[in-house]
Computed example of a mutant assay.
Amino acid sequence: MMHKTDCELVHDYIKGKESALEALLHRHKIRVFNYINRKVNNPELAEDLFQDVFIKVILTLKEGKYNEEGKFLPWVLRISHNLIVDHFRISNKAKFVNETSSQNEDYNVFDFVKVSEHSIEDLMINDQIVSDLKKLVETLPEDQREVLELRFYKGLSFKEIAEETNVGINTALGRMRYAIINLRKIIELKNIAFL
């Protein structure tokens, strides 16, 4: 299978040949991981982002939304870049308060405090979306729900999830993939719109 082009492997995978994705992953994993790691300079974070990249690749291929024939690696690197940007955007938003102290002070001084830019209405809508999403997550099979909750609510890496649930990392990734696919099916079936 190593002699096939990326394009041929993508088509094989879309037709249901799971080993084609493994071949693509094997062919490009070092380059993609190194690209991510150079940007984030943190191997553990790079591993998490790498796994997120391939979940996005899998979902896009399964949904039939991939249309960049012959440009698989640049497409994966663009997904990687976007997820890296998203990660830093989210982590910067999470740093609401930066504390500093000098030798002459007995207490910390807040450099700045982020004031919420959202109205009460926005916050209420967001709370409702979170509530609705939690109800949808509860409808998933237990193994899928567990992986999704550990990843998104507890922020565990897939390596940590695999250890916590006593399964292999590929099984954890697969469960996440099916959880997301099933959530999308439920959302489409019930015609739910998340802003």
Rank of each mutant, 00 (worst) to 15 (best):
V147C: 01
S102I: 05
N98E: 13
V57S: 04
F33Y: 12
I169V: 13
K56N: 04
E99W: 11
D122C: 08
A94R: 11
L173V: 06
V32W: 10
D86A: 09
V32Q: 05
I58V: 05
Y153P: 04
L61G: 01
F158I: 00
N34L: 07
L189P: 15
N37Y: 12
P141M: 00
A179E: 01
L133H: 13
A20L: 01
N82A: 02
N104I: 04
Q51D: 07
E163T: 02
D86T: 06
N34S: 06
H118Y: 11
E142N: 09
L83V: 01
P74Y: 04
E99L: 10
A23S: 15
S80I: 03
F88T: 02
R145K: 12
E69H: 07
R184G: 06
E164W: 11
R145Y: 03
R184Y: 12
P141F: 07
N37G: 05
V115W: 10
L77S: 06
V147S: 05
F194W: 00
R145F: 09
G70H: 08
I90V: 05
F88G: 04
L123R: 03
T5Y: 11
L24Y: 04
I180Q: 05
H3L: 10
L140C: 02
T171D: 01
I55T: 10
D122G: 09
N34V: 04
N41L: 07
H26S: 12
N166L: 07
D143T: 11
N191W: 03
R177P: 12
V10A: 04
L25I: 08
L136W: 03
Q103A: 13
A172C: 05
Q103S: 14
L21Y: 08
R27D: 02
D48W: 07
L189I: 14
R145C: 06
M124F: 04
V85E: 06
F152W: 13
K4F: 13
V53W: 01
V115N: 13
D127R: 14
D106M: 10
K65C: 01
I161R: 00
E18A: 14
I181H: 03
T171Q: 06
Y153C: 04
R184M: 13
V130R: 09
D132N: 08
Y178A: 11
G155A: 05
M2L: 11
Q144S: 11
R184I: 15
E105N: 15
L183N: 00
N170W: 13
F152Q: 01
E160K: 00
I180R: 10
I129K: 08
F110R: 03
K29Y: 15
